[in-house]
């Protein structure tokens, strides 16, 4: 279990996902949001139109992370970006 957890990266609600955190995206890289660490983060992200399935692109990263979707530019602090999982 421990090995699988380390390999997969994150464990959420008992199911293992091969996700990485949004903050691990490199500048210019795109990925799809697959999960959030908790409900609070999910609510916060919903408020700016980010939900599971949304494709985001990292445009800048240095403490604050700036991502773009098709029409939006959103700035997120590192703390929240680490609670968003992409795959």
């Amino acid at each position: 279990m421990i090995v699988v957890t380390v390999v997969c990266g994150y464990v959420k609600s008992g199911c293992m996902l091969s996700c990485r955190s949004l903050y691990d995206l490199s500048v210019g890289e795109s990925d799809r949001i697959c999960d959030f660490e908790d409900e609070v983060t999910a609510d916060l992200l919903t408020s700016v139109g980010l939900g599971v399935g949304k494709i985001v692109r990292c445009v800048f990263k240095s403490g604050t992370m700036v991502i773009t979707t098709s029409y939006q530019t959103i700035a997120i602090c590192q703390n929240i970006a680490r609670k968003i999982y992409v795959t």
Binding site: S47, V48, G49, V66, Q72, I74, A75, I76, C77, I80
Partner: peptide, 8 residues
Amino acid sequence: HSNFIIDI
């Protein structure tokens, strides 16, 4: 830590 998220 103060959470920051803004739709620009």
